[in-house]
Amino acid sequence: MASRNISVSEASRPKLPRHARLKFDETRQVWVILAPERVLAPDEIAVEVLQLCDGARSVADMIDQLAAKYAAPREAIATDVLAMLQDLADKGFLTEAREKTS
């Protein structure tokens, strides 16, 4: 599977694969990721980052945006965001946007 074992860098333009759906659950009033045989509840920060993963925006852009929004040092934000995205990718919840679709 093309999405497996991707390595996230600032140049990556990650997006959720079609089998992972980020959705606000109105009944329980929480954000959820729907995946095969799983329902996960991402925390607020993960939701914010995942919402930026549209396959067009690069990780570098995402870091800039978050650093500006929270008036935080870019380096600290970069470390956290890259670690979180890599972890999500390792679990199969992120894939790399393909060249042809970008």
């Binding site: 959820v32 509840a41 991402p42």
Partner: peptide
Amino acid sequence: AAPHDGLAVL
């Protein structure tokens, strides 16, 4: 979920 990935199983 690992503690730093922001995911918990609902």
